[in-house]
Design a protein around this nucleic acid. Structure first.
Lengths: 220, 220
DNA sequence: AATATTTTTAATCATTTGATTAAATTGTTT
DNA sequence: AAACAATTTAATCAAATGATTAAAAATATT
């Protein structure tokens, strides 16, 4: 076996293929990606893809798994920390995801797409994120807040909103950028601003109950 | 020429193909769709696709154009109506889009995807939605509100938020439904609720400026 | 009815594409 | 260096796929 005698510089062929596959799959999706595209992107022979990974699909599954893990990775600690408040958890989560999405803007669309193609396949491949039967700290904290403040709104809405506000700008980025004419740098600046704004907005939503919606301070 | 002698019942082959193509393209995307899939879905001979539409791509372009028009259609009247207030416009727009999305839940992902594949292609095919140089009524109304209420937040955020809150739940529906276990009926009920909730939340956001964010009424 | 036109079908083509193979090359071990 | 193992290459395969064609069937026109 070789085990990479080159001090560093060029990664192994296997790693080069994975990197190329990551780029091409993420940008074009599974169906539109040709194994030849990946080989070309990696600057390597076509047959190496089948030599290192048995098939296009096997390679894809590896990339997909990596991407899913980026979503799930390291948030368990966040949402299950008894030392932080609910508000701090929301801020930390949103900050974490925005940082991750700025680094990997193509990720959400890629994942959502493949889930859409076959929703059950994801569960089968990634496995249900089963966290046993112990309730998460964040869930308990929400329950306590909802009880204390008599919050009537369906919490699904709040969850949906936090996710929507955080992720959608990245999904719609090409459209948004195209229509508004803002460039990547401006876009990223906006995303950084949202780290503080989204928790504030979400907090405001929890505050706002339909019965209170006609308060005198309303702008419109 | 025939011109559809059948009183009604079965549509023309051409229309059947378009309907089938709409379904298959929307669900699987361009690359994953085989012309044979469309023929089978339509229950017609494969060659008819190339007989009526010159190629797979031409057929796709037609479907794409229809979908884009669904997005743009009939909103010009809404946003340019001098008789309605800004708040009423937002309510009407969100209501309009939620109704449309309940009918066509696969639309946003399809459109966003194809824009991503090639952002400039969309502009080329659909044509820039050029509304001349006259300012829209909704733009003027926003400008007036912003000036009157000394709103400092970048309006792009507000626009992004309204779009995110309205569209993302449909894009993420398979994921959301999968994780929360709610069925289609429940989901649609939630979307109906959002017709009233989103304008309220958006209004709340405009109200909330960062300097005011630590008001004493905060829930968290 | 006879003829022309349009629509539909089955068969086939040319290319693309995922995968394989056998040989060549490179690296490692003895 | 010889022998062995791992890696890489070029050539090729078989299946899939978008497209075409020529004939048949259906419909319209005269």
């Amino acid at each position: 076996m070789n085990e990479q005698t080159d001090i560093e510089k060029n990664a192994s062929a296997e790693e080069k293929i994975k990197e190329a596959a990551r780029r091409v799959f993420t940008q074009k999706g599974y169906a539109a990606t040709r194994t030849r595209d990946i080989a070309e992107e990696a600057g390597l022979n076509l047959a190496l893809i089948n030599y290192y990974f048995r098939s296009k699909e096997k390679l894809f599954d590896i990339i997909m798994l990596e991407h899913i893990q980026l979503f799930v990775h390291s948030i368990m600690g966040l949402v299950n920390d008894p030392e932080t408040t609910l508000r701090q958890k929301i801020e930390a989560l949103i900050c974490h995801y925005i940082d991750m999405l700025v680094q990997n803007p193509g990720l959400p669309l890629f994942v959502i797409n493949e889930i859409n193609k076959d929703p059950k396949k994801l569960v089968a491949k990634v496995g249900v994120t089963d966290m046993g039967n112990s309730e998460l700290v964040i869930a308990r904290q929400w329950r306590e807040l909802a009880a204390a403040k008599k919050i009537t709104i369906n919490p699904i809405h709040i969850l949906m909103n936090a996710v929507s506000l955080t992720i959608f700008p990245f999904v719609g980025s090409p459209l948004i950028r195209n229509r508004t004419g803002i460039d990547l740098e401006e876009f990223n600046t906006l995303m950084q601003e949202r780290k503080k704004l989204i928790p504030m907005w979400v907090s405001g939503m929890i505050n706002l109950s339909p019965s209170l919606s006609k308060g005198e301070g309303e702008v419109m």
